[in-house]
């Protein structure tokens, strides 16, 4: 079966210093897949998106979208993909309805023709259809942008940080919409800096400093976490971390929400009790230590710290 997105050895550098934004990246996304590019700001996600959507020429490597080369066949690709840039980029001085019908007409289609694709989203926008796009709330803007990217029934949808700056409820809504879009057979590539959104993807690629660290299903990635992980609480976070740093035999510790996460070698035994005793000995009270299930965030921190070492 042909891949929906296939990138081989893709690189992009900028400026005279040739700052490497994308460092020999290879990716394979299957048709109908919801694929996530997970990485912090500046990891190179947007540059990859811009190369795949024919807005930027790669310095090395090739990429194909639904079999079309991003350099040679850019015209075909532009007919077949939907792109929602990270920044809201619709016409603020046109209304919701005008924006939507403009993008529909540009692709030689109509709102009615593909209404079934956007109807779940559009019902929420409909009360505001006479409002200027610039006057919408952040969440509504994102929904409109998604509608505009979908209105020509693209085969591949590129969403660059679609939930950045959107409230948690709207973010949840947004991911449910993406799950429904999958049912229409649309391949979706989504970039996000939010680690908690990773589990909503079929497969993810962890990306940092222009390089892909790991590609797999979210479950497989967390399952492959090599260390044993505990979550620890006792007094203030800074006191807890200070105390933990004095303990021998731990690989790393860091704050994560209300708990501190402590990674220890998988072979170490009886660490739970040792950590507890150590913290009590350091004068902390109300100490809680319990095993934790690794998340994508823990995997990421492992990569980051290994790189520093």
């Amino acid at each position: 079966m042909e891949l929906a997105i296939e990138a081989t050895d893709l690189s992009k550098w900028y400026g005279k210093e040739k700052t490497l934004a994308v460092d020999h990246v290879s990716l394979a996304v299957k048709p109908g897949e919801l694929f996530g590019l997970i990485g912090p700001d500046g990891a190179g996600k947007t540059s990859i998106f811009r190369m795949l959507t024919t807005l930027l020429l790669p310095n090395t490597g090739t990429a194909r979208v639904n079999g079309f080369d991003v350099v040679k066949d850019y015209v075909e690709i532009r007919d077949r993909v939907g792109y929602m840039p990270g920044r809201f980029s619709l016409y603020q001085d046109l209304t919701v309805e005008e924006n939507l019908s403009f993008f529909a007409t540009v692709f030689n289609t109509t709102i009615e023709e593909n209404h079934h694709l956007i109807k779940d989203i559009y019902v929420q926008l409909e009360p505001f259809k006479k409002r200027y796009a610039g006057k919408l709330s952040g969440g509504m803007k994102q929904k409109l942008a998604l509608c505009c990217a979908l209105i020509h029934r693209p085969e591949v949808l590129f969403l660059d940080e679609p939930t950045t700056g959107v409230d948690p409820v709207s973010r949840k809504d947004f991911w449910e919409m993406l799950a429904r879009l999958k049912e229409h057979g649309i391949t979706i590539l989504v970039a996000t800096p939010y680690m908690d959104e990773a589990t909503r993807c079929d497969r993810i690629a962890l990306i940092q400093e222009g390089r892909i660290l790991q590609v797999d299903t979210p479950a497989a990635i967390t399952a492959a976490y090599p260390d044993r992980l505990f979550q620890v609480k006792g007094g203030s976070m800074s006191a807890t971390l200070r105390a933990l740093n004095k303990l021998d035999g731990i690989i790393r510790c860091y704050g994560s929400g209300e708990f501190a996460h402590v990674a220890v070698p998988a072979t170490a035994t009886d660490m739970e009790q040792r950590i507890k005793d150590h913290l009590l000995a350091q004068g902390l009270t109300d100490v809680v230590v319990r095993p934790a299930i690794p998340t994508i965030e823990d995997v990421f921190i492992k990569f980051t710290q290994e790189k520093k070492a």
Partner: peptide, 13 residues
């Protein structure tokens, strides 16, 4: 400036 040219550039225009 508003980035709309990006959106235009990925269309067949």
């Amino acid at each position: 400036e508003t980035g709309t040219i990006e959106q235009i550039n990925v269309t067949p225009i």
